[in-house]
Every structure is written in structure tokens, then in C-alpha cells.
Amino acid sequence: MLDKILQWDREAFVYLNSLGIEQYDLFWSTVTKFPPWIPLFILIISLFFIKFKKREALFMILTLLIMVIFVGTLTDLTKNVVARLRPNNDEEINTLIRILRSPSGFSFFSGHASSSFSVITLVVLFLRHRFKWVYLFYIWPFLFAMSRVYVGVHFPIDIIIGALVGVFSAWMFYKLYGLLILPYLKSSHHV
């Protein structure tokens, strides 16, 4: 069963990666990097301070940062335990694919997918009652994660599992925020 899934994953990757068109290489090579997305993070931080009291906004941002450290650590540990080669380093398929990036390290699961989906899911959970359009922020993790297939460094399952880990981590940190931080913030208002 696992062999069939991995075979499908490799075939799906080769197919999706082969859809790449040279005219879009610059776009996807830019989308896959972190700096172009900095304006999005500035907007998100601004929205926290616009819609919440300063102290609550700071605790939300702190929760986001702690979650990013957790997700990054979990991703790195999983990559080293599973030790799955990236497509660009897999000698069986790397001559069949378009490679725009050549990182070393392992593939499973995608840190781009886990980190971006965790951040945006937590942001959506925090802001969904204040802004109905906040779901549009999911454009970032979708593009960010899909760019990894385009540039030749992640299989589809790496992306799917990374996204699921990110969403679950965000939900878990949102619940922890509600249990541990929100009661503290509410009680400190009455002091």
C-alpha cells in the first residue's frame, strides 16, 4: 500500500513539475522565497493592532511566533527521521524534471507548507470574526507550497502532509491560547 502511494506521489510530481513553463520560472522562483511576502506579514500585524487592544495583539503575535518555532522544530525532526530524498536529489527522477532550486536536506514534509498553513490558519482563527475577507490570506500558503513542486524540491505528499500539520498545529495553538492566555487577559482587565 505504501509503495503504491509513493509511486503515485512520484508520478504525480513528475507530471505536475513538467507542466512548468519557462516564462513563469521567475514568478515561481520569487513566490517560493520568504522576503516577497513580508508586506503580507506587516498587514497581518497591523490588523491585530487595529482590531485588538495592544496587549491582546502582542499575545496573539507571541502565540504565532511560538507556534512557528514549534512547527519548524517538528518539521526538521520529521525530515531527519523520515530522511526522504528531495526530488532534485533523487537520481531516479532528477533527470526527468525541471529543477529551479537545489537544496540539500530531506523532503518529508514540506516546511514551506507546514509553516505557511500554520501561520495563516492561526491568523484566520484570530481575525475571522473581525474581517470576513481574511480567508483570502490562504492565497499565500497555496502559492508558497505549490511553488515547491514547480521548482523541483517537494513531492505532492510532502505538501499535503505539511499543510495538514500546519492547520492542525494552528488549531491546537488557538485552543491553547483560549485556555491559557485569554482567561489571563480577561482577568487582568478587572484588576
Rank of each mutant, 00 (worst) to 15 (best):
F137Y: 12
L122Q: 03
Y174G: 13
S147Y: 08
W171P: 01
F144D: 13
G162V: 06
Y177H: 13
T121S: 04
W133S: 12
H129S: 13
F142M: 12
Y174W: 14
K175E: 14
L127K: 05
P141V: 13
Y138T: 10
L164D: 03
F173M: 14
F144N: 11
V153M: 01
R130L: 11
A170W: 02
Y174L: 11
L179H: 08
S118K: 03
D158L: 12
L164N: 05
Y150P: 03
G178Q: 14
S115V: 13
I181K: 09
V134K: 03
I139A: 05
A163F: 03
S147N: 08
L164T: 03
F117T: 12
I181F: 07
F126H: 05
L164I: 06
L179C: 06
W140D: 00
S115K: 04
V167M: 14
I157F: 02
S169G: 10
F137G: 15
L127C: 08
S115H: 08
W171A: 12
F155Q: 08
S116K: 10
V153H: 00
V167N: 10
L164E: 01
G178E: 12
H154I: 10
L179A: 11
L122W: 01
Y177R: 07
G162N: 11
Y177L: 11
H154Y: 08
S118P: 02
F137S: 15
G152S: 12
Y174P: 07
K132R: 07
M146T: 11
V151N: 04
I181A: 08
F173Y: 14
P156T: 01
Y174F: 15
A163H: 01
H129I: 03
R130S: 13
S116R: 09
G162H: 05
I139E: 04
S115P: 07
L176C: 06
L182Q: 05
W140C: 01
W171M: 11
G166D: 03
Y174I: 10
L127Y: 08
